[in-house]
C-alpha cells in the first residue's frame, strides 16, 4: 500500500530531476568535453603505467605483456633489498639530494639578500640575467660544458696548473664527484631560486625598514629582525616542499656526468633503474626499485604538502 501510494510522487520527482539533469547537461556538457583530452592522456600515460607496476611482482616476459607473465610475489623485492648495491645507491641518492637542496636554498637566500641591498636597478638586472641563464639550458649542454672545463686540459686544471697544483681528474674521482654535482647544480639553480626569495623581500613594506632605521637599528640588525622574519613563511614553504624531492638526486645531471669509476659515490636510484631496466633488460627488477621509490616519494610528498599547508597556508587546488 505504502509503496503504491508514494510511487506516483517518486515518478514525478524522478521525471523532474531527469529534466533538470538534461537542462544541466545542455548547458554544461562543454565542461566535460574540455576535460576529455586530459583524461585520455592521464589514462594512457599516467594510469596505465601505474597499472604496469604489477610487473614488479612478476617475472616479466615481454611476449606476454603486463597480464600474462608469471607471478612471483615479493621475490624481486627480496632480491633487491639484499643487494649490497641497493644500500649504496639509496645512500648516494639521499646524500646528494639533501646536499643539493640545502646548498641551493642557502645560496639562493644569500644571493637574494645581497641583491636586495643593491639600489642600482640596472646593475641588479644584469647580475640576474647572467646568473639565471644556466637554468634555461639542458643538462646535455651544461654537462658538455662541464666535461670540457673539468678535463685535464680544461680551463679549471689550466688555472690550477698556473697556481702550481697538479691536475685533478674531477669526474673520475670518488672524492670529487659529489662536490662537482653539488656545485654544478648550484650553478644551474641558484640564480633562478633567488627570484622567489627576492620577490618576497621586495614585498616587505619599506616603512618597516625606515622605522627601524629611525630607532637606530644597523643594516645587519634590519636584515635579521625585518628581512629574514619577513620571508620566513617563504623559507618554510620551500623547505617543506623540498622534502618531496629527497629521492630525486638529479637523474639528468648524473646520467651525463658519471662513469663506472664513480658509481660508488654517484650512482643513484634513477640511474640504477635506467641501467638495469633499459640497458640490461632486467625489467622486473628495475620496475621493483622504481615502485619502491615511487611509493616512498608519494608518502614524502603527502607529508610535504600537509606541512606546507599547515605552516604556510599552501594549497594546490
Amino acid at each position: 500500500m505504502l509503496v503504491q501510494r508514494t510511487h506516483p510522487v517518486q515518478r514525478s520527482q524522478s521525471a523532474q530531476s531527469w529534466r533538470r539533469m538534461r537542462a544541466y547537461l545542455a548547458r554544461n556538457w562543454p565542461l566535460y568535453a574540455m576535460c576529455l583530452p586530459a583524461l585520455v592522456l592521464l589514462a594512457l600515460f599516467s594510469y596505465y603505467p601505474m597499472y604496469g607496476v604489477v610487473i614488479a611482482f612478476q617475472s616479466y616476459n615481454p611476449a606476454f605483456g603486463f597480464t600474462g607473465s608469471p607471478w612471483i610475489g615479493l621475490t624481486n623485492f627480496k632480491f633487491i633489498f639484499n643487494l649490497p648495491d641497493f644500500l649504496q645507491i639509496t645512500q648516494n641518492t639521499l646524500i646528494i639530494a639533501i646536499a643539493k637542496i640545502v646548498s641551493v636554498q642557502v645560496g639562493a637566500l644569500v644571493l637574494a639578500l645581497l641583491l636586495n641591498e643593491v639600489r642600482h636597478l640596472g646593475f641588479r638586472r644584469v647580475i640576474q640575467t647572467l646568473t639565471y641563464l644556466p637554468y634555461f639550458l639542458s643538462w646535455v649542454v651544461l654537462g658538455g660544458v662541464l666535461l670540457d672545463m673539468l678535463s685535464t686540459t680544461g680551463i679549471v686544471n689550466l688555472t690550477l696548473q698556473k697556481m702550481g697544483i697538479q691536475p685533478i681528474i674531477f669526474l673520475g674521482s670518488n672524492d670529487w664527484f659529489r662536490p662537482v654535482l653539488i656545485v654544478s647544480n648550484m650553478w644551474q639553480q641558484v640564480g633562478w631560486s633567488a627570484i622567489i626569495y627576492l620577490a618576497a623581500l621586495l614585498s616587505i613594506s619599506p616603512e618597516l625598514y625606515e622605522a627601524a632605521a629611525i630607532d637606530g637599528a644597523s643594516h645587519l640588525q634590519r636584515v635579521f629582525h625585518i628581512s629574514l622574519p619577513g620571508i620566513a613563511s617563504t623559507i618554510i614553504l620551500l623547505a617543506a616542499l623540498s622534502l618531496g624531492g629527497v629521492l630525486n638526486a638529479g637523474f639528468e645531471q648524473i646520467l651525463n656526468l658519471y662513469n663506472p669509476v664513480v658509481y660508488s659515490t654517484g650512482d643513484i636510484l634513477d640511474t640504477w633503474v635506467y641501467r638495469a631496466g633499459l640497458l640490461s633488460g632486467q625489467l622486473s627488477l628495475a620496475a621493483a626499485v622504481g615502485l619502491a621509490k615511487s611509493v616512498v616519494s608519494m608518502l614524502l610528498i603527502i607529508v610535504a604538502w600537509t606541512t606546507a599547508r599547515r605552516y604556510a597556508g599552501y594549497r594546490i587546488f
Partner: peptide, 9 residues
C-alpha cells in the same frame, strides 16, 4: 609508475 612501466607503455 616509474620509468620502466612508462617505457613499456
Amino acid at each position: 609508475g616509474g620509468l620502466i612501466p612508462w617505457w613499456l607503455t
